[in-house]
Simulated scan of single mutants.
Amino acid sequence: MAFYHKLGSIPKKKHTTFYKPDGTLYREELVSSKGFSGVYSNKYHLNMPTKATKITELPKLADEVWHDAELRHFHFLTDTLRKEGDFFSSRVSYLENNHCKMYAAKPTTNPDYFFKNVYAHEYVFIHRGSGVLLSDYGSLPFVEGDQIIIPQATIYQMHFDSFDDNKIVVIESDTPYEIPKHYRNEYGQLEEHAPYEERDFKMPQFMEPKGDLGDFRILMKAGNRIFEYMQPHHPFDIGGWDGYLYPFAFNIKDYNPKVGRIHLPPPIHLLYHTKHFVLCNFNPRPFDWHEDAIPAPYYHSNVDSAEVLYYVEGDFMSRKGVGPGSVTLHPLGIPHGPQPGKTEASVGAKFTHEYALMLDTFEPLFPTTNVQQTEDPAYPYSWLE
Rank of each mutant, 00 (worst) to 15 (best):
S93E: 12
Y119W: 04
P151H: 02
A104S: 15
A105W: 02
T108Q: 07
Y113V: 15
Q147V: 00
P111T: 14
V124W: 08
F114Q: 04
N98R: 11
N110F: 00
L140M: 07
P141C: 05
A104Q: 07
V92D: 12
Y137G: 03
F125A: 13
F125R: 08
S130P: 06
P141F: 05
K116R: 15
Y156S: 08
G129L: 09
N117P: 01
F115M: 14
A105K: 09
I126R: 09
G145I: 02
Y103S: 07
F142R: 06
N117R: 10
G131K: 13
F114C: 05
Y137R: 12
A104Y: 05
F125S: 08
D136Y: 07
K106P: 02
P151F: 00
K116H: 12
Y113K: 12
S93V: 10
H127V: 06
Q152I: 15
P111C: 11
Q152R: 15
A105P: 11
Y123P: 03
G138E: 09
L95A: 07
S93H: 07
T154E: 05
S93T: 09
V124G: 10
F114K: 04
A153C: 05
M102L: 15
I149T: 14
L134R: 12
A105F: 01
G131S: 10
N97M: 06
S93D: 09
V132Y: 01
I155L: 13
V143K: 15
P107T: 02
S139R: 15
Y119A: 14
S130G: 12
R128I: 00
K116A: 13
V92W: 09
T154W: 01
G131E: 13
A120G: 06
V118M: 12
I148N: 07
H121C: 04
D136T: 01
K116D: 13
L140I: 02
N110T: 08
Q152S: 05
P107G: 11
Q147W: 10
G145W: 01
F114Y: 15
L140W: 00
H99K: 11
S135V: 01
L134M: 13
T154D: 03
A104H: 10
N110D: 13
V143Q: 15
V92M: 15
D136G: 03
K106S: 11
V118G: 04
Y137I: 00
G145F: 04
D136F: 07
N110E: 03
P111V: 12
